[in-house]
Each structure stands twice: as C-alpha cells, then as structure tokens.
Amino acid sequence: MATKKQARVDVKKTYKLFINGAFPRSESGRVFEVSAKNGDFIANPALASRKDLRDAVTAARAAHSGWSKATAYNRGQILYRIAEMLEGRAEQFESEIALTSQITSLKAKSQVLDAIDRWVWYAGWSDKLQAVSGATNPVAGPFFNFSISEPQGVVAIASSTSFIDFIDAIAAAVVSGNSTVVLVPGSLAVPAMSFAEVLATSDLPAGVINILTGSLDELAPWAASHMDIDGFDISGIDKKKRGALKEAGAENLKRIHAFSTGQSPTRILAFMESKTVWHSVGV
C-alpha cells in the first residue's frame, strides 16, 4: 500500500483562566471567539463570570498575607524572574500580539521588549519604596514618628487592550505586596493568558496575580462593589463609565484610580497606605 504523508493536525491551545496558580475553565462554561485581523479563527478563550471573579478574589485575599510579608528583596527577585521568563518567550508574545491586535509586528516587538524591561524596572523598586515614600516626621515631644507605606491588600485591575498597559498595571500593584485580580478585555486574551504561563513558572506564589478574560462591562461593576477588594485600577475603562464604578466602590471606601502615565512610581504608591508609628526616644 502506498503511504501518503498526511498533513499534521495542529494542536490548538485551550485558553483558560488563571486563578490561584491554576488554569481552570470558567465556572460558567462560556467562551468567546478571538480572530485575527483577517478574520481567521485563533482561539476560544474563557469568558469569565462574576463567580470566577469571586473565586479569584478569595485566592488573592489568601495570597496577600504571604506576599506582603515576603521581604522586599524576595519580591524584587520574583519580579525579575518574570522578566527572565518573558525574555525567553519574547517571539511568541510578539507574534500573538501582532496576530490579535491592530498593531504592526514591529510595534508588537518593541512592546514586548518594553514589557520585559518594565519588569526589571519595577523589580528594582521593591526595596526602594520604603526609602522614597516613608518618612521620619517631626513631632513636638520626646518621640520618633514614622510614616511607613504598606500595600493595600487586594487590588483589581481593569486592563486596557494594550499589552504594555496590562504589564504596567500589574507590576505597579504587586511590587509593593498587593495581590491582584486582573480583568482582561477579550482582544488581549491570547497574550494575557500566555503571560499567565510565564507567571506560573516564575516562582510567584499562587493567587498573587489572577487573570480573568472576558467582558469588562460585565465584570467591572462586580469588582467595584466587591467588599473584599481594596483598590481598583480602572485605566482600561471607558471614561464615561468610570463614574458609575467609583460610586459602586464607595461602600467600602475602595481606592479607584485611572492612570494616564505608564511607567511611574506614583502608580505604585497609589495602592499603598501610610501607617504612622510612634516610638519613644531613648528606649
């Protein structure tokens, strides 16, 4: 019998969510379609539901204590490790971004290289934050008075559709010791979930970064009103829709910010709180 070599069937990746260090499907079982610029089918990522958000917040809350108590040095090392992992897969990210977004492959390449450098830049901040944002305050008495910056807790992020913005938002929140739940709009789902694979191999404790892909319109209101989320970065939300989210977040005095600048230490400090400590002099 003549043997004819058959074309190999591609093994397609199932894009799932990233919750508590694992890759579950959405509890709702829903997916949505991502296609290339030319309309070709690319993938069916998971369409996260509010219950996936709830599970992600539970995971983030559980991870917060360990991550915030880790030494600044250790957090910096892990952020640097993320850069290392990303570097090794740079080409994959370039092609995924170019394939699924409206930008050219040249721009995609520079975004990925910038993203890698950003992780290194934020990694450097971990042990310098205290020196820059903390203070010894003058008081009228025999006391020292210190202001110490601490991470807020669980920070939700509504990411924009740009990969570099997605990286800036996450890195700025986690470097100080916050844990995060990142809501990713559909068009960024493919590179975002590949980035979750980078996180899974970076010694990052489970639950510190959780990534949900789907619809921001559906998920953001639930994140805004969630009483166990302490901060919310809404940079990726349409300006007209921000007011309603700020209102929903007022119940637990959530800090809700939108940023226009990318790489900036003010983004780190935005999700930190100042603790004041008194200590008597000479004891």
């Binding site: 709830r54 917040v57 809350r61 639930w222 009103s225 969630h226 009483m227 166990d228 929903a248 119940e251 637990n252």
Partner: peptide, 8 residues
C-alpha cells in the same frame, strides 16, 4: 447585591 468581605 454585592459580594461581602470577611472583614465584616
């Protein structure tokens, strides 16, 4: 109508 927190 919104998710609660163990803080409460």
């Amino acid at each position: 109508g919104y998710y609660a927190s163990p803080n409460y």
